[in-house]
Simulated scan of single mutants.
Amino acid sequence: MEGAIFYWVFWGVWIYLTFILEKQNPYRLKLAIIVLIAIILSNVQFAVGKFDIQASGLFMLGCCYLFINQEKRAALIYFFICTFTVSIAYVTFHLFEIFDPIWIIFKKEWMMGIMLWYLAILLQKTLKGRLLIIFAGAMQGEILYAFTLNKFQFQYLIGTFSYLDVCSLTAVLLTGWSVLENAGSILQTQFHYFEKGKQKSS
């Protein structure tokens, strides 16, 4: 069922932000509001010219642009390159799915999620940066894909539950990877601290 991954992940994130995360965290309220609005808008659709758009995806794209806009000018250029790279990869995957579907060897959302996860790790070093380029780049890819299909008189709903599922799955994979990265640095710090204490005692 399309949208299941999105709802599970976003409701889980909202519960964590609202009831578990420290209230002193400066991002807590902003992120909780963004997640809740994204859930509310997930079934809202509207038309812009020849294109039908699901409001949740467009809202997420706008939020990503706002966060990216807070970066320095040099970082903005690099973010543009990263989001454009993700967009091209997203569109290419969909086009290959149409012209040669036999290479989809398991569930499409998982294949796209793993591809975008690996791409985000290569392009960005922080979890925030990785999430921004995934949500923004994939939505830009949705728009570009819709323009491509429109040339052949095919209708395509932009920002569908499939897009939300892929982004949600990728976000979970990226968060898990970030936890592993931080766990490694913490263990390394503890190990060095233990070694120093051992050397002093001897």
Rank of each mutant, 00 (worst) to 15 (best):
1 M>A: 07
1 M>N: 09
2 E>N: 03
3 G>P: 01
5 I>E: 02
5 I>R: 14
6 F>A: 08
6 F>V: 05
9 V>N: 01
11 W>C: 13
13 V>S: 06
17 L>Q: 06
23 K>L: 08
23 K>M: 03
24 Q>D: 08
24 Q>A: 15
24 Q>M: 13
26 P>E: 02
28 R>M: 01
29 L>T: 09
30 K>W: 14
31 L>F: 05
35 V>S: 06
36 L>W: 00
37 I>V: 11
37 I>C: 05
38 A>P: 02
40 I>E: 00
40 I>M: 07
40 I>S: 12
44 V>F: 07
45 Q>R: 04
45 Q>L: 09
46 F>I: 15
53 I>A: 13
53 I>D: 05
57 G>P: 02
57 G>E: 08
57 G>S: 08
58 L>K: 02
59 F>H: 02
61 L>S: 08
65 Y>K: 01
65 Y>C: 11
68 I>N: 06
76 L>A: 03
77 I>G: 11
81 I>P: 00
83 T>M: 13
89 A>I: 14
90 Y>F: 10
92 T>H: 05
95 L>N: 08
95 L>M: 08
97 E>G: 10
97 E>V: 08
101 P>V: 13
102 I>N: 07
102 I>Y: 09
107 K>I: 15
107 K>L: 09
112 M>C: 03
114 I>E: 00
114 I>S: 04
116 L>A: 03
117 W>N: 05
118 Y>E: 10
118 Y>K: 02
121 I>M: 04
121 I>S: 01
126 T>R: 03
129 G>W: 06
129 G>A: 06
130 R>W: 09
132 L>I: 01
132 L>M: 04
135 F>H: 14
136 A>R: 14
137 G>W: 11
139 M>Y: 08
142 E>P: 00
142 E>A: 07
143 I>H: 12
145 Y>A: 14
148 T>I: 15
149 L>C: 07
152 F>E: 13
153 Q>L: 14
153 Q>A: 12
154 F>T: 11
163 Y>M: 05
163 Y>G: 03
164 L>A: 11
170 T>V: 04
171 A>M: 12
172 V>M: 07
172 V>K: 13
173 L>K: 07
173 L>M: 05
175 T>G: 14
175 T>F: 10
175 T>L: 09
182 N>A: 15
185 S>Y: 05
186 I>Y: 12
186 I>W: 14
187 L>P: 03
189 T>M: 10
190 Q>S: 00
191 F>T: 09
192 H>M: 07
195 E>F: 12
195 E>A: 12
196 K>C: 01
197 G>I: 15
199 Q>A: 15
199 Q>M: 14
200 K>R: 15
201 S>W: 15
